[in-house]
Amino acid sequence: MSSTQPRQRRQGPLWRIVSILTAVEIVIGAIALLAIFVLVFMQAAQRYTSFESFAWTGELAKFAMIWLSFSVMGVLVTSRGHIALEIVDSFKNKMIVRVVQTIALVIVVAVGAGLVAEAWALVTTQGIIKSPVLRLPMSFVYIPVLIGVASLTIRAAIAAIDVVINGPHLADYEESEVTAA
């Protein structure tokens, strides 16, 4: 399963912007992960200490999980970390692979655009709904989600253009950061 993709495809100003965006999104995801760890640990610890119990630890941890998932949803498109059926990639005719991969990414762009519309609707309408414990307006919770799906859409569009210009990406698990399913 040798990689045929040329290294130089990941250069140029567009990729620099993408890589900065990637760094920012992964940092947000990392903060969210560590927040989940700390909050859940606190929930366990406060039972054994005399501190007053915080009811919001569970709720905030749940929000962190949402923010984590949406902040790196786009990164996974760029890093090809989303789980997909890669049967088509094994076709000998690389033109077919290129066309199919492009169509797939265009579909992701379309789904991403739909998600942006949905997220926008939630940010603008869910202000009257408050979270059960913190009474945080739910529209705030959806703001990072909106940013995440917008990034997803842009990244999928860039990836689609990249496949059209540079040919198909082929699986290389060494590069993949996803290590579980």
Partner: peptide, 30 residues
């Protein structure tokens, strides 16, 4: 089959269904 990632292969048609069934915008993402 055309290698759309599993998550988006589920999301796309499901969101289309929600629109066609008259569910409000935002319901699917919620």
């Amino acid at each position: 089959v055309i290698r759309v990632p599993v998550a988006f292969a589920f999301l796309g048609p499901s969101m289309l269904y929600m629109v066609l069934e008259g569910q409000s915008t935002g319901m699917a993402l919620r």
